[in-house]
Design a protein around this nucleic acid. Structure first.
Length: 294
DNA sequence: CTCTAACTCAATG
DNA sequence: CATTGAGTTAGAG
């Protein structure tokens, strides 16, 4: 029989703020981002206290998501229907529990307006990229036709293979573009290789991508994602924002290209104190129905 | 005690 | 579900 587990705090209010509860939920997820409903679920599963008065605290929690810059609303991928967006943690907010308290931070995590603008631009670009690459009609373009570049909407979610968060990762295989991604390099590839040869080496995904992009731009069939945002390196969200891969390499390539989706380092730049505090708290609450093993 | 993060209520989109 | 504002509560130093 599952021991009531003192870590779930029974009917008592757990000593965590909504912000830390939400951070736990997100951090605990494999993708490091969750829709609202799953955040609710995480909390109610672990802490009985929150199985009551749901309307009240859930409203408060939503308020926190919107109000605090430490939470980022990631647009839902079109091939993943569902309600609401995904919520992720801003990487720069990892040290927000510096003082070791999961109840009240020393300072509120707030982004400057310019950073917020950049971030929202990037996220908008991401949404556009998604919409763009998951829209089947685009296949009509003559140049693109043969290349299985543009997918029909994928129906399955392939398992995400994220590097398990182990003790450390000295070198993660992070994808990085071999050259800088400026507007110029995208629109006017400096290499004659692309423009001169019509028959691209399909193993060179970068070249392939550039060619593809060029054709799409020329086609004018639908708005392209604002490419300039792709070069903004100021807001680099680590891999936990990484959308699960699909079997569609070209899409992966494009999406991976976005700075929002690039890994910044081991544990995504996780601050040690954050890691310790949160994992401790998560494991605390996680022992609800443990004790017998599942 | 002060300062301000966190919470609540609630209107609005 | 998401955003915003305003007023209240309460934790940290």
């Amino acid at each position: 029989m599952p021991r009531p587990s003192r870590e779930s705090y029974g009917d008592q209010k757990p000593p965590y703020s909504y912000i830390s509860l939400t951070a736990m939920a997100i951090f605990n997820s494999t993708e490091k981002m969750l829709p609202l409903s799953d955040i609710y679920k995480f909390i109610t599963d672990r802490f009985p206290y929150y199985r009551k008065n749901t309307q009240r605290w859930q409203n408060s929690l939503r308020h926190n998501l919107s109000f605090n810059d430490c939470f980022i609303k990631v647009p839902r991928r079109p091939d993943r229907p569902g309600k609401g967006a995904y919520w992720a943690l801003h990487p720069q907010a990892f040290d927000m529990f510096e003082n070791g308290s999961l109840l009240r931070r020393r300072k509120r995590f707030k982004l400057h307006k310019s950073d917020k603008d950049i971030l929202s631009d990037d996220l908008a670009a991401l949404a556009n990229i998604n919409r763009f690459f998951f829209t089947p009609q685009i296949v009509d373009h003559p140049h693109l036709h043969q290349h299985h570049i543009i997918p029909s909407v994928p129906h399955v979610d392939p398992p995400i293979h994220q590097p398990a968060i182990t003790t450390d990762t000295t070198q993660t295989d992070i994808f990085r573009p071999k050259r800088s991604f400026t507007i110029e390099s995208l629109i006017t590839p400096d290499k004659d290789s692309v423009s001169s040869n019509d028959d691209l080496d399909k193993n060179d995904s970068e070249e392939y991508f550039l060619k593809q992009r060029k054709l799409l731009i020329e086609s004018h069939q639908r708005p392209l994602p604002p490419l300039h945002t792709i070069t903004s390196a100021s807001t680099r969200l680590p891999a936990f924002l990484h959308y699960p891969s699909t079997s569609l390499n070209q899409i992966n390539y494009d999406i991976t290209m976005h700075p929002l989706l690039m890994m910044t380092g081991p544990l995504g730049g996780l601050h040690p104190s954050y890691y310790q505090n949160l994992t401790a708290a998560v494991h605390h609450g996680a022992n609800n129905n443990e004790s017998g093993g599942s």
